[in-house]
């Protein structure tokens, strides 16, 4: 088996909750609570979960945009969390990110050209003369006219801006791209354009993706493997087809059954979960899902379920599987 490009072990991120004049820490929001996974070269790992499950924090912690509390991140054989500043800066060429909100992710004061030149300036790539050519070829590659380099972000639609965001990530020729809800803010017709673009770019540049999303159909479409998170913990990981045809964790089952199917005659056996997501500041004891789980037993309230491989490359954390 080839060695994983990205390996994450027991990643933890707690945000302190501070109160009072002295800003004493009175508790922690356990945004990410022990997540481990590996992504192979050229693979797409989908990460799904509802708001507050820690998927975005996880993505940013891997890139050290948020400093993780604990854990180990190995990228291409190097321990990312132990790198010093200059080493980390160099490492950022290899790992890039595309953000959700195309309106917030581009500097409104920079032209599209300036935005795309920025990464090359930071890493001193190409000669200044070649850079503009590179900008034009990047724009064309993501399906935008090269004249757009002179325009400002507010002149573009959401889909076009997202293409610019993707071009910026690609400007440094990364190996890994973390896609943090890249199509969630886009209209469906534009969403499909961007998804196709991402697939083409992956083939062309041999990219490895971590695709974070809340939309299960999108994740199913683009991912080779899928990881389901609940309240900062892993609920289930399996190959995409396996997970969607044969979900094992009760949360995954409920999640899949909750998606509205665009077919008026579809037979639905919907599992409607009761109640809301518990607060990650005060997660339930035992299995974090037991408060909403339709099949929970006493054991679930007391013991944290172990992470087990129940079938070949199908892992789940549930006492009842």
């Amino acid at each position: 088996m080839t060695e994983a490009l990205l390996q994450v072990e027991e990643l933890v991120k707690y945000f302190p909750i501070r109160r009072g004049v002295l800003q004493r820490t009175v508790g922690h929001v356990k945004a990410v609570d022990g997540i481990s996974f590996a992504v192979n070269q050229g693979e797409t790992l989908g990460v799904v979960g509802e708001s507050g499950c820690g998927k975005s924090t996880m993505g940013r912690s891997v890139l050290r945009l948020i400093e993780p509390t604990k854990g180990k991140v190995t990228f291409n054989g190097k321990n990312v969390l132990s790198l010093n500043k200059p080493e980390m800066r160099a490492m950022r060429r290899e790992m890039q990110i595309v953000f959700q909100d195309p309106y917030a992710s581009l500097n409104p004061r920079y032209t599209i050209g300036q935005t795309l030149l920025e990464p090359m300036k930071i890493h001193n790539l190409h000669s200044p003369g070649e850079r503009m050519q590179k900008v034009h070829s990047l724009l064309e590659r993501v399906g935008l006219a090269s004249e757009y380099a002179r325009r400002f972000p507010h002149e573009f639609s959401g889909g076009q801006r997202q293409r610019v965001g993707i071009a910026r990530a690609l400007a440094v020729n990364p190996k890994l791209v973390i896609l943090d809800e890249p199509v969630a803010a886009l209209d469906v017709s534009v969403q499909s354009q961007v998804l196709n673009l991402l697939e083409d770019l992956q083939d062309e540049f041999h990219l490895t993706y971590v695709f974070i999303a809340h939309d299960l159909s999108v994740v199913r479409h683009i991912s080779d493997r899928v990881m389901v998170l609940y309240l900062g913990r892993m609920a289930e990981v399996a190959d995409s087809e396996e997970l969607f045809t044969n979900p094992l964790h009760p949360y995954t089952k409920a999640l899949l059954s909750a998606i509205p199917v665009p077919d008026p005659d579809a037979k639905r056996e919907r599992i409607i979960l009761q109640g809301d997501l518990p607060s990650p500041a005060n997660p339930p004891s035992g299995c974090p899902f037991h408060t909403r789980c339709p099949v929970a037993v006493d054991k679930c309230r007391q013991e944290v379920p172990a992470w087990r491989e129940v079938k070949s490359s199908h892992h789940v954390a549930c006492h009842l599987v």
Partner: peptide, 26 residues
Amino acid sequence: EFDYVQAERALGASHGRIMFRIILPN
């Protein structure tokens, strides 16, 4: 907290560059 500032960090820009070239004009 804006993503374009985060994007700059993800690209490896220094604190000075982010503060004075990205945030200050805004």
